[in-house]
Each structure stands twice: as structure tokens, then as C-alpha cells.
Design a protein around this nucleic acid. Structure first.
Lengths: 154, 154
DNA sequence: GGTCTGGATTTAGAAAGCGAACCCATACAA
DNA sequence: TTGTATGGGTTCGCTTTCTAAATCCAGACC
């Protein structure tokens, strides 16, 4: 296992780090659980609430925050014979978190699973070939984790 | 953009979902910021504190939690002429989160950056070729996001 | 023996989380 | 037109967690 060299501080101060900024936006239990549900197709307030079993105050606050941050889009929908209501769907910004959450799912499968095989897996469309989160170069060829180098600007 | 089909509930209840379990473990602002620092090489209590500017109570609680969860290993180190103190290094379980946090970094670069070019980037060892988070099949060849299919067990 | 230093815990006030109850607008039924 | 059901919230108290500052503690060094 590659040991990370000791550092007293990170090379980028958190205030100007896009990872730290991303953590400010999505680094929250309920926020992540909302995004998980949204990626599975949940869109409506009461459906989120039934799924998450969280206080409605928290849910409405988090949904508002995600809309403000640009991850969710709030717009009315109209079921026939019903009145118009808002629904929350993922924007392109929100959808682009999918690889990360799938990666986290597979991390959980690897380290947290309780014995059984994973309840959900991912394949390439049409085939049964399993896929996994990884890094690729410009040509789409895998780069193994120990080959990754970090480069600072300037 | 591929619209996700409407669902009233997620296909896997959160209680038995490894993604939800993973969120319970790492879905916390301070926890994620600690892991970020650890991946940059920070190991010691006071260094984490200087980096994160978080209350020491919170830091010691989170470090304990991460050790209990198996992401960090606590062991003594001894600087010459100093007494032995604990340091916190990433276990294999913690290290394997690196691709996910790199992915989140790049998501932040894409969506949250304030104009400038990213302060940190990632390349394949030895070369200057940029890399990115993606999905690959068993042979290490990229699978595009729209080709990803989810498969439920059973 | 006194002091410094890294790694914490204690304490008390502020913020956030929580569950239950309530509110409100619309559709549809009586 | 009064009533009821329903989805999408807000209001209200209470409890937990967070936060900041102070304190504690053990070993190295003078």
C-alpha cells in the first residue's frame, strides 16, 4: 500500500479548494440521501419524506438549498385531475454527481456490505459486463490508483 | 440529457443500501474535510486542527469515529527528542476513497470554480496527460455515463 | 522543580435537529 | 356550498449536537 508522505498542511488551503467547496455543498447526510433518492427517480416532497423519514422542516430546507446551489430544479408538474404541484429534478450539475455516488456505492459494497452480494450493481448497457468507478486518461484507458499524480498550478 | 424516470421510492430501501451506509460513515462535513486533509498527508491532531479550524471536541470525536469505522489507523509515532504521540493514517479502506474524493474535486472544478483554472490537477505518473474519473468495464475500457445500467439482485 | 507542548476532555451557551401539530390551496364528492 | 381528501409545506417546543474557551495531563527539557 502506498503510504502518503507526511504533511503539516494540505497544499491548497481549504478556502480556495474546490474539493472543500464541493464538501460545503454536498457534504451533509440529508443532502446526500436526497441526492441518492433523486438519482433513483424520486421527485416529490412527500416521496422524499417517506423515503428518508426525516423531519419535513429539514427536508424543505435541504431542497431549497439544493435548488439554490443549482443541483435541483423546482418546477410544477400536473397529474391529470390533480392540481399543479412542484417537483424537484436533477439539473445537469446534479446529474453529474452520479458517477461519484455510484463510486461511493461500490466503496460501500466493498467495505460495509454485510456478507451478501450487493443488492444493486452496474453494467454496460445491453451487456452483463460489470463496470466500476476508475480513472482514465484522455483516450479512455484506465489509470491505476497508484499511477495517479497530483500537480499543483503555478 | 437523460431524464431519470419518476419513482415514488428508491428500488433499495435505505436501510439495506450500501450507498446509504456509506453516507452514514462519511456523509458529514467535518469527516469529509478530515479525509481530504488525510489524503494530502496530514496525520497529527494539531495539524488537522490548524487545517480545519474546527473545535477540538469535534475533531477528537470525528477522529475516533473514523478509527472505529476502520478508515483511519491510530498508532504512536516518535519524533526524536519528543515523546511518543498518536498519529492518524489512512487504512486501505480510507485510501480507497481517494478516487471518490478526486472525482468530487473535479466536480467542484467543473461547477463551483470561480473562473480560474483548478489549483490542483491529476495526471498519469510520468506523463503530463490529465486524467478524470470515469467508469470502466472489466478490461479497463471506458463506459460512457449514458451506457450505465443499474441491475437489481434477484 | 518549573515550563513548554501536543493531545486531548470539560463546560456552558448557540445552533440545528427533531416530531407533532397545524395551515393552505385545490380537486372532487355530496 | 359545504365537506373531505391530498400534497406541500410552516410553526412550535423540546432535545441533541456544535462551538469556543478554559482546563487537564503526560513527558521532554532546562
Amino acid at each position: 500500500m502506498t503510504q502518503i508522505p507526511l504533511a503539516r498542511r494540505s497544499p491548497i488551503p481549504p478556502e480556495s479548494c474546490n474539493l472543500a467547496s464541493a464538501i460545503e455543498v454536498v457534504g451533509d447526510r440529508w443532502t446526500l440521501l436526497i441526492l441518492r433518492a433523486a438519482l433513483y427517480g424520486v421527485r416529490r416532497f412527500d416521496d422524499f419524506q417517506a423515503e428518508l423519514k426525516c423531519p419535513r422542516t429539514v427536508l424543505s430546507g435541504r431542497l431549497k438549498g439544493l435548488v439554490d446551489a443549482g443541483l435541483l430544479v423546482k418546477r410544477p408538474y400536473k397529474a391529470p385531475g390533480k392540481r399543479a404541484r412542484p417537483e424537484y429534478t436533477l439539473s445537469a450539475m446534479g446529474l453529474s454527481l452520479r458517477p461519484i455516488l455510484i463510486g461511493l456505492t461500490q466503496w460501500g459494497d466493498a467495505w460495509l456490505a454485510s456478507g451478501e452480494s450487493p443488492p444493486i450493481s452496474f453494467t454496460k448497457g445491453g451487456t452483463k459486463a460489470a463496470i466500476r468507478a476508475a480513472f482514465v486518461d484522455a483516450d479512455g484507458r484506465e489509470v491505476r490508483p497508484d499511477q495517479i499524480r497530483t500537480v499543483l498550478r503555478g
